[in-house]
């Protein structure tokens, strides 16, 4: 999967892509793949943004932040909410996964949309790299995360869950 700018939108893309996620500020909206595209039409920068979860409370904050970044870069700005194709964790870039791990959040292990309904994914501890971990809760501090604990180093950690 890829994200891109269209036409003459490179500067606008650079501005929008630098916006950090408000809840996971170690990664940008481009790293997460929720900024789909930016195009410039008649001097107006239009950014396509997709929500992670249906009810993600950060969606509006993210849209406002991208709009503000585009205005700071000198564009009139408009946001288009993109529902299809839906965001999945496959949209997170390799760089984004690396940044999540450095931040102490285990990146999603594999595309989980069609995974078995019961039974948890095996998750690697972002601190010590052990595969011996256990799930504490399917739901974490934000809609996109679950809570895990490492059985080797004993640290609890967030897991960016697969959808």
């Amino acid at each position: 999967m890829s994200v891109c700018w269209q036409g003459t939108g490179e500067a606008a893309w650079e501005a929008a892509a630098s916006v950090p996620d408000p809840e996971v500020p170690c990664v940008t909206v481009a790293d997460l793949g929720i900024l789909r595209w930016v195009r410039v039409e008649d001097g107006v920068a239009v950014a396509g943004v997709t929500p992670t979860y249906s009810g993600c409370p950060a969606t509006l904050a993210i849209e406002l932040a991208i709009e503000a970044a585009l205005r700071d870069a000198g564009f009139d700005a408009r946001i288009e909410r993109v529902l299809t194709p839906p965001w999945t964790t496959d949209w997170i870039t390799d760089e984004g996964r690396e940044k999540l791990r450095d931040y102490g959040i285990a990146p999603p292990e594999e595309s989980g949309g069609k995974a078995t309904l019961f039974g948890a994914a095996q998750v690697t501890c972002p601190r010590c790299g052990s595969r011996e971990t256990e799930r504490l809760s399917e739901f974490g501090s934000t809609a996109c995360k679950a809570q895990y604990r490492c059985l080797s180093c004993r640290e609890p950690f967030d897991y960016f869950k697969c959808i």
Binding site: P51, Y53, S54, L83, T84, P85, P86, W87, T88, G112, G113, A115, L117, I163
Partner: peptide, 12 residues
């Protein structure tokens, strides 16, 4: 369709 694509994953 957009709603469905997201919601089926959440329902799982």
């Amino acid at each position: 369709r957009g709603v469905a694509g997201k919601a089926e994953k959440e329902m799982a």
